[in-house]
Computed example of a mutant assay.
Amino acid sequence: MVTLAKTELFGLFAAETAEAMKPLGLEPYRGKQIVEWLYKHGVREFDAMTNLSKDQRVKLALRFTIMKLSQKAAQHSVDGRTSKFLIAFPDDMAVETVLMRQPYGNSVCISTQVGCAMGCSFCASTLGGLARNLTGGEILSQVLYINELLKQEDHKVDSIVIMGSGEPLANYDNVLRFIRLIHEPYCLGLSYRSITLSTSGLVPEINKLAEEAIPITLSISLHAPNNELRTRLMPINKRYPIEQVLAAGNRYAEITGRRVTYEYTLIAGINDQPVHARELAALLKGRLANVNLIPINPVPERGLLRPAQTDIVRFEQLLKSEHLNVTLRREMGTDIDAACGQLRHKVLSK
């Protein structure tokens, strides 16, 4: 007897779900009903889909699966505003997902890969290398996991930052699937403008993303004002140096009309001096851009330190004196493993 491999439903669009139902004799409109159960109502069992007949539910259970997550660890800041979850998929691979309760709403930081291959010298996500890409459904499942928790407080996810473990644009197709899917009215119906994607600077993919005509916010990890220093911090700079990255950022801003954010992690004695601020100002002046300064969350294995507060303020003021749009990231969750990949690395090390 041949047993058919079951197909995972989580991560499919309504039209794809309807197509997958055809061999079972289900009407096309059932596709939308099923994805609403999955994405809007958080149902993870076919038996709970009460607008389907019992016979239809049995057929579905024989042919399809619905992804279920498990929580391997969780940390909550003392002020209750930040929660970090280590979430495992059915194959026991785990990623970090972070809930940040902001004055303007609930923001979720999600991962797109298990681990990371970028090798940035200040990041915990790269310590174990890259295990695998996440599917569109696995990326979506992180947001919906947090949304179900927030429902218990009569709240919901208001914005998303694709800024957790992994390089989103190295997993381009799955990330785009997620972005389009979460925007669908039968999913969360989230505005594209409520989504921020952070990249280490994969130039061809930035250009490709610009052509998608999806008005998400693009955030580019710069972290240094010159190629020599950026290559030390970010090996990807050997392939795509600063000049190419900035040109791609300009093109994205021109096509989408959206201001690009350049992230700059401040590291004591490495990139936090006045000379670096002046170099950075010269690079970004006149561009449709913001600078987001991020005092480093130190990772013990990396041996890099957070600058003194006076150095952080001085750096910020120097940029502002050059009329750049500058924000200093509000620190959240500093009493837990705040840096990307720290919680996962700690659990794996044990």
Rank of each mutant, 00 (worst) to 15 (best):
E8F: 00
F10Q: 03
L12A: 12
A14S: 10
A18I: 13
A18L: 13
P23W: 11
V35H: 01
L38A: 15
G42P: 11
F46K: 07
D47P: 08
L52Q: 03
K54G: 06
I66S: 10
I66F: 08
K68P: 03
K68S: 14
L69F: 13
S70L: 05
Q75T: 12
G80M: 01
K84L: 07
A88N: 09
D92E: 14
T97A: 03
R101S: 05
V108Q: 01
I110G: 12
T112I: 09
V114W: 00
G115A: 10
E138P: 03
L140D: 04
L149H: 06
L150Y: 02
Q152W: 02
K156E: 15
M163E: 10
E167P: 02
D173Y: 11
L176A: 05
R177Q: 05
R180E: 11
H183R: 07
Y192E: 14
T196S: 15
T199V: 12
T199H: 09
L202K: 02
I206L: 05
L209S: 05
E211K: 09
A224M: 09
N226L: 07
N227Q: 04
T231H: 03
P235H: 10
N237G: 01
I242K: 06
E243F: 10
L246F: 11
A247F: 03
A248C: 15
N250Y: 08
R251A: 14
G257L: 12
T261Y: 13
H276I: 02
L284S: 04
R306K: 14
A308W: 02
D311V: 01
L328G: 14
R329A: 12
T334M: 14
A338I: 00
A338N: 01
C340H: 02
C340G: 07
R344Y: 08
K346I: 13
K346A: 15
S349M: 14
S349P: 01
